[in-house]
Design a protein around this nucleic acid. Structure first.
Lengths: 340, 340
DNA sequence: TATTAGCAGTCAGAGTGGTTGAGTGCCAGC
DNA sequence: GCTGGCACTCAACCACTCTGACTGCTAATA
């Protein structure tokens, strides 16, 4: 088993490699850190770490770099999160300080997180699955065309167009809207789906067809609410860190442009400890992201852990600082949305 | 002045260079194209073109590549747009065939255009400035907090939260909503702004404060409607064409992530001929996009030329094919949205 | 006057070989 | 368990040469 000191050696190797992007040698370790032992001793420790596959040599006569497994051990041991600088705290305050609607708050959040970490930031919209229907609106656009608008208590607004088979007068529309709101208001989405399926029965025969057309549009919206959405910012940062990737970063960019991929990834990120979750390098290989790490944490919108946010960057990243940033932003965002 | 043949030579230089990414020499021209003259003659023509700064040599003993000015002459002369392949037409049909709401149609359009051209695709939302208010909705979220929803005839939906200073009962809210809809319905946004400014006067003193809070939220939305929005897809393609940029593509990606930049660029793109507009290389230098070309055309949403869409890629791109693709997509989209 | 063939000159890029220096692995001694 | 020392390895760098793809020019030709 690796001794205390060799774990410490792993720690400084990760730190120095992240900072310099160059393989770390035994000599530079004793120079930069006060271990109180000679380079040869460090070499012995490094041999140990290499045996356990926590570090590896790009070529025979070079320093060592951490393996994915090494990063994993490093992160798991990570106790001291580097606290944010006052300037960073300030940035969070001013960025998120003003109230606005959900779209705008999340948009600002994702840009903020990307600026704080200098990596790609991701913010998932609060899932609709657990939220409740607050209001339904029907807007006539043309005699046989209406727009249905669904508003949930998480502040999300979904719209859809529906063509109906007969003309609808304003009165009838208002009546239907009121019935919909009375029936659906406050319902969870799953219950709403059930209710909508039989909603047509409340109306007279002649109107039933058209009501069911509207209801099925709403039903689609309710179901579509489960197909989650996410925001992204700072993809340019991937290019900035291009050298951290062995091949081209094209496939990486392609993968993250595919929202579905990221949503699956988010879905797999079970919270490990106090809501926080880290996936390192090859752990993401199945998503075409084998050279990237993803840090996420949950944030709450209405007192319930609904959605996640985080950053994505090269495996060689400053975990300590970034974890602190993700946590801080999530905390602020939760507080902001919790006020609702 | 450049002769007919030398313009033809320019044409094949652009074509071959775009296809091969390598400087084009006189010998390869006579080999690949049947000019019926010798390489020496072509060289004379090339000397002419170089004098007029339409082509340039990366270094003394190499072939020639087109200058930005050369591309410009080439594009202006472009008569034969390469028609889309049947497969591409098919793709457009199936992609845009199904009706859905505005967000989804535009989202699909931008992805489609990016796939057709293999470049970054841009789609501007129909501007709200010329559109009219279709409906206003007020949704109570909490006793002193409501959400205002603004729906325009271009199908756009804007939402905003507003905190008010006194509790509002449902009746009063319904009354205010009805008054708002009667007053604002069908109004252009400029007129709506004026009307909203004095809207409070219609109510009794005690309520005036709270009405004005709501009205000013709506006013903000009306004004915010002018801050235009655009969608982007296919940024990964910029990385694919990385070699076409002299330095890093980082600043390019940064520039296009800044929506404001692109919107300014779009705003400057006056339609040159039949709505189509091309900006080449250095013509975009002021936006940090001096090595990219942008092709745009307008599309119509409600019978009026409201918004633009287009592609952005390296100056060295296949103008003929891409112009055809942009045009075709704009035509389909106009038809689709015109049905409203 | 427009075109052509031939030839000298240029130069990026690829290939070669030698050198350097950072860094390891190992061993004998403390 | 730690240390100093030494032989060994190998990527990175540099200077150098060689090659081949071009052009530009000139003189001959239709």
């Amino acid at each position: 088993m690796a001794s205390d000191r060799s774990l410490e050696v792993l720690r400084v190797i990760v730190q120095d490699y992240v900072a310099s992007r160059e393989p770390v040698g035994s000599k530079s370790i004793v120079e930069r850190h006060s271990f109180g032992v000679s380079a040869a001793t460090i070499r012995n420790d490094m041999a140990l770490l290499e045996e356990e596959e926590l570090i590896a040599a790009p070529h025979t006569s070079s320093g060592r770099i951490p393996t994915d497994k090494g990063y994993r051990v490093f992160v798991n041991q990570l106790a001291d999160l580097r606290p944010l600088t006052p300037a960073q705290r300030q940035a969070i305050e001013t960025f998120l300080g003003q109230s606005a609607d959900l779209d705008e708050v999340l948009g600002r959040t994702v840009r903020l997180l990307s600026q704080l970490t200098h990596h790609v930031a991701l913010v998932q919209y609060p899932s609709l699955t657990r939220s409740r229907i607050r209001h339904v609106e029907l807007v006539p656009l043309a005699p046989t065309r209406i727009m249905t608008v669904l508003i949930t208590d998480s502040g999300r607004v979904e719209q859809r167009l529906v063509d109906v088979s007969q003309e609808l007068d304003a009165e009838f529309l208002a009546d239907m809207r009121d019935k919909l709101n009375v029936t659906l208001g406050g319902l969870g989405l799953a219950d709403a789906a059930e209710t909508l399926a039989v909603f047509g029965e409340r109306f007279e025969r002649a109107r039933r067809d058209v009501v069911e057309q509207v209801a099925s549009a709403l039903l689609e919206q309710v179901l579509a609410g489960r197909t989650e959405k996410l925001l992204m910012a700072g993809t340019a940062n991937l290019v900035r860190t291009e050298e951290d990737f062995t091949g081209s970063i094209y496939p990486v960019l392609e993968a993250i442009e595919e929202q579905v991929t990221l949503l699956r990834l988010f879905g797999e990120m079970e919270p490990e400890q106090n809501g926080f979750s880290v996936r390192i390098g090859s752990e993401n290989a199945s998503f075409g992201l084998g050279e990237t790490s993803v840090l996420t944490t949950g944030y709450t919108s209405t007192g319930d852990g609904l959605a996640r946010l985080g950053v994505l960057g090269p495996t060689r990243m400053d975990y300590s600082t970034n974890i602190a940033a993700v946590r801080a932003v999530a905390r602020y965002l939760s507080r902001l949305l919790g006020e609702d």
